[in-house]
Every structure is written in C-alpha cells, then in structure tokens.
C-alpha cells in the first residue's frame, strides 16, 4: 500500500500538512461506514477496510518518523528494527549518559536540569530530522542506508523524549 498515492500527495519526506488534512477529510468522508448503511454486506466490509486504511495512512503521513519509514519501505529498504541491533558505540554511549542524567534528575527532582535536557533532546531530534530529510531527498541506495540509520537513531531519541515527558508530568503533579 502506497499511502502517498492513496492521499494523492508527492512521494517525498516534506509534506504539506494542509494538503494532507484536506485529503484525509475527503477520504475519511467517502469511506465512512455510515455512508454504506444500506449497501450490501460485502460493500460494508470493504468500506470498513478502506476507512481503516485511510486512518492508518493519515497517522503514517503526518508522523515524520513513520513517514520516513514508509518512504524507505516503498524504496525496498528493510529496516528490521526487531532483528538489527544498533552498534554505533559513540551514539549509544551518549544515550547511556543521557539516561544516567535523567535518572539523577528524577531522583533529585531537579526541574531546571530537566528543562535543559528537554531542550537539548528536542534540538537533537530536529537535527536528526533535517539530516533524514536531506538523505531521503538524494534518492540513492547509499543515502537511503544513512536515512535508515537516522530513523533508528530517532527511535532512541523519541524514547528519551517520552521519558522526559513522563518525568515532567510526575514532577508537576507534586
């Protein structure tokens, strides 16, 4: 399934969010199960399937990392998140350090340090995303490989961001 074709959008990392949500609204409307109340069982089933596809596609296209993964899949690049471990020692050491500081921040309830880290991680995510975009735009096998590595790195960065948010919530509840 090519979600870009389904939404009639150009197959690229840069997505016009206004175009995307317009296309989504149209597609969601024409595949809405209510429209098929008087149709045959088969048509109803198809509409439900199509509607689910439209919703999945919308999630994928609006979420940068999922969009990048989709583009790579369409180009035949397998990401194999489950089997392939990351071995970039420098990157992982940095991850380890961040996790350690986060633990420290959590136990000392240091909100200023948490805010600093939040900013740092968000700016790192931005850097990874722009690198990802640049690599995906080149459209060759070598840069697709680098893009896949960026996707993998982003997974770790998002995990950190989520953990920071959890701690932020916990601290603001006190």
């Amino acid at each position: 399934m090519n979600y870009f074709s389904l939404f009639r959008l150009p197959e690229q990392f840069q997505v016009d969010t206004a175009d995307l949500s317009r296309a989504y609204q149209t597609l969601a409307q024409i595949t809405h199960p209510d429209k098929f109340a008087t149709s045959s069982e088969r048509e109803k089933r198809l509409a439900v399937q199509k509607n689910a596809q439209v919703n999945d596609g919308y999630q994928v296209l609006k979420t940068p990392i999922l969009r990048a993964e989709h583009i790579l899949e369409l180009r035949g690049v397998e990401l194999k998140h489950e089997q392939q471990t990351m071995q970039d020692t420098g990157f992982l050491m940095q991850q380890m350090e961040w996790r350690e500081s986060l633990e420290e921040i959590q136990s000392t309830k240091n909100e200023d340090a948490l805010l600093d880290m939040d900013g740092e991680i968000k700016s790192q995510i931005k850097n990874h995303l722009s690198l990802l975009e640049a690599e995906l735009t080149k459209q060759n096998a070598e840069s697709d490989k680098v893009a896949a590595e960026e996707v993998r790195k982003l997974k770790f960065m998002y995990k950190l961001r989520d953990e920071i948010e959890l701690i932020e919530d916990a601290l603001s509840d006190i």
């Binding site: 990401l79 998140h81 392939q84 970039d88 380890m96 996707v151 770790f156």
Partner: peptide, 13 residues
C-alpha cells in the same frame, strides 16, 4: 560491548 534495540529504544552495556 554497547548495543541498542531500535524497536524499543533499549540500551545495553
């Protein structure tokens, strides 16, 4: 040995 699992963001040393 430093390794990480992209699927869940786990890091292991």
């Amino acid at each position: 040995g430093m390794v990480g699992a992209p699927a869940c963001g786990d890091v292991m040393k």
